[in-house]
Design a protein around this nucleic acid. Structure first.
Lengths: 161, 161
DNA sequence: GGCAATTGCTTCAGGTCTCAACGAATGTCT
DNA sequence: AGACATTCGTTGAGACCTGAAGCAATTGCC
């Protein structure tokens, strides 16, 4: 939790960025551990799996693995493993394209579709519950302001793409 | 990145919590991937290691592994491995307490202290850089509002401690 | 004292994650 | 056509991460 403490001796107003960053990390870690635990105990799934399925859910025709990789911000190598496990239990299927035999497309099975819908519902309830004490107006402002942070970070990534 | 898209068809103002959560995840992931990469290329370290060292840095007398575990929000089993690796390259040392031979205390070596100071400096610069486009007033408000989210989440964890 | 519960750390199995190296298919350029 | 480069996915090593089971030391209770 308290990587936060690194900055505790910061002088008034200085190191704002650092403090915010540590709080961002702590908050996200706290919440995602809770979400992970519930996904695991109630659905036997993991967060990366849920994330991947969410992408496929909105694309009836499926997605190529590379596309999945960039949308989930997960490396190629990792997508391979995720897809293998999900295919193994019948949630998704994987097929090679005829036109270009390098590419593989993954998409939800019917079973996977139903399975995901259940999880997505529960997931949304959990998040609402976790944020229950926060004023709706604050939520809205947070969304916008976090957007600024994300934009800023994106502009300052090490030059290359 | 765009787990965010799961919520794209949300009706005006509804699903605010979900959208915020997804943005929180995306922002943190984006930034921590960048930080990880730089830690790795410039210092040969990882983020969890940095986190752990940060805790030890502020406690001259060291910390017991259990304390490290709860402060870094890392499981016990994981702390064992982290500490082993850090001890192997001389950054920290581990010793058993005489009073209670169950407990192990880890603390920074002199070498580790210097090493960490260099990283901490660089780390702070990186974060400032990544957040450079965000207005200081916004940073301040974000810090406070994120605090509310964290508090709320903490209150709603599955009952047990 | 004696013995069960508790505490503190380690070990283990399985999944996630990164980077780097590889191999196959396709594209490009001459 | 032939050679080179690029794209896409897989593989592999190493670290991280989790929950659960295991083991040792200590505490608590009779």
């Amino acid at each position: 939790m308290d990587l936060e403490l690194v900055a505790s001796d910061a002088q008034e107003g200085k190191k704002q960025e650092l403090k915010l960053w540590l709080r961002l990390l702590a908050t996200t870690k706290l919440m995602s551990q809770e979400v992970r635990r519930r996904l695991r105990t109630e659905f036997g799934a993991t967060l990366p799996q849920f994330d991947l399925l969410a992408q496929l859910y909105r694309e009836k025709d499926g997605l190529r693995l590379g596309e999945l990789s960039s949308r989930t911000m997960v490396t190629n190598g990792n997508v391979t493993g995720l897809v293998e496990r999900l295919e193994a239990d019948g949630t998704i299927i994987r097929e090679r394209l005829e036109d270009d035999k390098r590419v593989t497309v993954a998409r939800l099975t019917e079973k996977g579709r139903t399975y995901f819908e259940g999880m997505a519902d529960a997931h949304e309830r959990w998040i609402k519950e976790l944020m229950a004490e926060v004023d709706p107006a604050v939520l809205k402002r947070l969304l916008a302001e976090l957007g600024q942070v994300k934009e800023s970070a994106q502009k300052h990534l090490s030059e290359e793409d």
